[in-house]
Write a protein that binds this DNA or RNA. Structure first.
Lengths: 225, 225
DNA sequence: TCCATAAGTTAGCTGAAACTAAATAATGTC
DNA sequence: GACATTATTTAGTTTCAGCTAACTTATGGA
């Protein structure tokens, strides 16, 4: 729970991004990483080398980075901070869904264990954040339940809207306006090819979601009861 | 309220330190500044030059820095963040007096206007922090009431314990243990020369305060009623 | 299988902000 | 008023984390 080597905010950001890419894609390609951190691929490549020196990832050139156990713990700690902060800002300060991501992004790196603990206690040791993302426990356990991008569902398939990328305020506002939130059940009614819009029924009303939004929405497939 | 040029945390720290030195000593000497920031005088000197380029201080070599109006506003904004955070952590999370300084030191640089506003509202737009330091208003007005170091009072003089440096946890714990807090009335009973201990009566009990502690305690002189 | 394109890396540079060592100004004492 | 002491600044280096440009490896179509 305590870092030995004094880890910079930049390194924490890389660890977090690599973790999230591994969860989503199974691996963290350099360019995807660069994209997520908003730096050039050259910078990401270099930083991955630094993370390797710090023992946070293992990698061999040209084949991406894989978090070590130590790197994974660091990533989960940052993610716990991030998600607790998001939930705290929503619950305690009544801030909106789409605002809290940017706030948490900055605060996550300077949150002490002490304050983290106080926040978690205040919120009743929560297990999911406002976007439906699971919050790692104090001991950094996390249950990443398998989800699929909404765009991959075929018409007729049903599921539960489980989480949505927290980094697209416009998307979050769009959903908030329509009262769509994690936990809602949904059924794909129709979809158009080539990343076109997806038609989804949420408790009655059918919504048309553009391709980009559909890819950002993660769905847990209906256990068919 | 919004910075034009994207100001780093380091620059914010310098502005704050210069402000506090100006309040305490009337001016901010390079070595005092270096001391406060925990860098070498050479580093402080260099950074003062940078602050001058940013229009935050005016200075001519060898005669210290003076905050410009812009620099003063930046300092007060950081100080507002710091003191609101300290109070928030004490009031809402029940953290102790001596812990909150370090926390606030890190958080102050990443607190958005939004969250600052929420915290201030939650606390009821407070005007002093837990250490007795005044909190600048939203419009950055502050009332720095004239105080003297306890060590400068002569036996027989009376006053009100008004504030204490928040950066010395041991000192704060010492005071907390004895139930001494800002607002307490006091009377100097005796003192020893050469930075020796000062004997002070707080509502009955006489306490012996070492020279270092005495210098850290700021006292508002009794208006003699 | 070959090769064009895409992905990833290396080399070399930049700006922040720290450092040490050396030089220079201010100050206070006699 | 001279000079020793202290304070401040300058010069030159380091580390971090980004950049561009040039190069290398992977990959997928024909």
């Amino acid at each position: 729970m305590v870092h030995e080597q004094l880890i910079s905010a930049a390194v924490e950001d890389y660890a977090k991004a690599i973790y999230e890419l591994e969860v989503r894609d199974g691996r963290a390609r350099t360019s995807a990483l660069a994209d997520r951190i908003s730096v050039t691929p050259a910078s990401a490549s270099q930083m991955v080398k630094r993370l390797a020196e710090l023992g946070l990832v293992s990698y061999s050139r040209y084949r991406g980075a894989r978090l070590t156990e130590k790197g994974r713990r660091l990533a989960l700690e940052v993610i716990r901070h991030h998600r607790l902060l998001e939930l705290f800002l929503v619950e305690e300060f009544g801030m909106s869904w789409d605002q809290v991501h940017a706030e948490a992004e900055a605060l996550e790196h300077v949150l002490s264990e002490q304050v983290e603990e106080r926040i978690a206690a205040r919120l009743g040791e929560p297990v999911v954040d406002p976007h439906g993302d699971p919050i790692p426990t104090v001991t950094l356990e996390i249950e990443e339940c398998a989800t699929r991008g909404l765009e991959s569902l075929e018409p007729g398939e049903r599921g539960v809207f489980t989480r949505v990328s927290d980094s697209e305020p416009a998307m979050l506002r769009f959903l908030a306006e329509r009262g769509i939130a994690p936990g809602d059940r949904l059924e794909v009614v129709d979809k158009q090819p080539f990343d076109g819009p997806v038609f989804v029924r949420f408790s009655g009303a059918v919504e048309v979601l553009g391709g980009g939004l559909a890819r950002a929405m993660r769905v847990r497939l209906d256990p068919e009861r």
